[in-house]
């Protein structure tokens, strides 16, 4: 009882420590897990749901040399205008959404442009048909005709390092 009373009298110190600990280690782990953009391939998915961490782990199995992390994000309007979205390497979008912003994507690399069913925007082949690829990780919207695009601002679409990740995504069950 005496001990409990003593602890109760210092409760504010214990609560402050808990908060400080959560903020400090949360920040440290975000720093430790952060990989520079040059060594990361970023993918945005416009869907109802996405099991991001599991998708990251699957795609990381196909990382090319020089890439240390693949980070998949579910698109939300909260990230609209953020650098990570604007400079993302890959986008998985329904054709109708992609048609609203044709300048956001770069033409498909030659090795992929010859595939069947590619989507052309403004006369340029930009989107690879997704079909039901990665459906075990992504819950696609029912009325969406999904395509995979390379970002116009992407550094890894230009150097080709996003291509193996895109191919791995399309090959996922």
């Amino acid at each position: 009882m005496k001990i409990l009373r003593a602890i109760w009298s210092k409760l504010h110190v214990y609560v402050m420590w808990l908060l400080a600990s959560a903020i400090f280690w949360g920040w440290i782990f975000s720093l430790v897990s952060e990989v520079p953009a040059a060594e990361r391939v970023t993918l945005f998915v416009y869907a109802a749901e996405c099991r991001e961490t599991e998708l990251d782990l699957e795609l990381e199995k196909s990382m090319p040399e020089g890439i240390r992390q693949v980070r998949a994000h579910l698109f939300s309007y909260a990230v609209f205008g953020e650098d990570e979205l604007l400079h993302a390497d890959l986008y998985v979008l329904p054709a109708a959404e992609a048609a609203k912003m044709p300048d956001a994507f770069r033409p498909l690399p030659e090795s992929l442009a010859q595939r069947e069913g590619v989507l052309a925007l403004g006369g340029t082949a930009c989107g690879l048909p997704v079909g039901q690829a990665a459906a075990s990780f992504v819950s696609y919207l029912p009325d969406g005709d999904y395509y995979l695009f390379f970002g116009a601002e992407s550094a890894h679409a230009a150097d080709g390092k996003a291509i193996p990740v895109a191919e791995a995504f399309l090959a996922l069950p």
Binding site: W17, W25, I28, V32, D56
Partner: peptide, 30 residues
């Protein structure tokens, strides 16, 4: 714990570190 960070375990390790530092800190503070 920071040294074992991988893509799939960041949240779990961060939670473990927060728990360890909180409980250890509480004991030291007491």
């Amino acid at each position: 714990l920071c040294c074992f960070v991988r893509t799939g375990n960041v949240k779990q390790l961060a939670l473990s570190a927060i728990s360890v530092s909180t409980v250890g800190g509480w004991a030291a503070l007491s």
